[in-house]
Design a protein around this nucleic acid. Sequence first.
DNA 1: GTATTTGCAAATGATTTGCAGTGCT
DNA 2: AGCACTGCAAATCATTTGCAAATAC
Lengths: 132, 132
Amino acid sequence: MNFEYLIKTHNLKVTAQRVSILENMNNYGHINIDELFLEVKKNFNNISLATLYKNINLMIKNSLIKEVKIASYKSKYEIKKDTHAHILCTVCNEFEDLDFNCSLAVDNVEKTTAYKIDNSEFIFSGICQKCQ
Amino acid sequence: MNFEYLIKTHNLKVTAQRVSILENMNNYGHINIDELFLEVKKNFNNISLATLYKNINLMIKNSLIKEVKIASYKSKYEIKKDTHAHILCTVCNEFEDLDFNCSLAVDNVEKTTAYKIDNSEFIFSGICQKCQ
DNA sequence: GTATTTGCAAATGATTTGCAGTGCT
DNA sequence: AGCACTGCAAATCATTTGCAAATAC
């Protein structure tokens, strides 16, 4: 994935810190602020949480990344892609994307409510096969 | 709705503050901490945020209420009922329950992932008909 | 009567802001 | 030169904790 291009096309300036943030989000799939801080620190020893938060908020505003809020956990951040569902195992804390037809549900809701939907969240949580 | 009974059957002691918390959750449908604080203050002038948080956390632990986390907003709390979806208008901030067949989706996910699902969140957001 | 709850104040944790210095174009 | 970005320190906002007095059962 070309992160510099991704940043530019979302109307932001390319900085090494921003590239590192996106690289780590991409590697983890979903990453919370503390994990991100530890990872980015490996390349930028002096980076501050303030810089992370500023960049995350900017990237969210410019629709480059997305915050996923999860009850009882810290928010996770992911690079924005087509709407998809998430599934969480509350025992091992595995958190994954799920193959689930969201657009069908969205179409349905738009028809029945007359809302124009621009975002949707689907989070399933429970116990994965290994942990049962 | 009989709130005292509801509290007792969830193994908690009945206090006037707890009843008031549930009454307000029920009236609002979904309520955030600041709204709840203002409302409960009308009956209990000296109630503190600490008491609200303590009670909310206890009630969540005992499955009496549920926290709904929403990106860009403060969490809302609701009295627990059968799984249902939510819809948010990002213009007027209207937040409502949605008639949406969640159990069908849950069954499906359990089959395809072999997870045992015990909770799920469905939040649609966009612009309601009035605000379009 | 005992254990739990309440309300206050203080502590902790999370996020944001202001500002001086740096770097990019 | 000018503008945006970074990193630090401090400020703000959100939530939790400890404790003494009050209340539920």
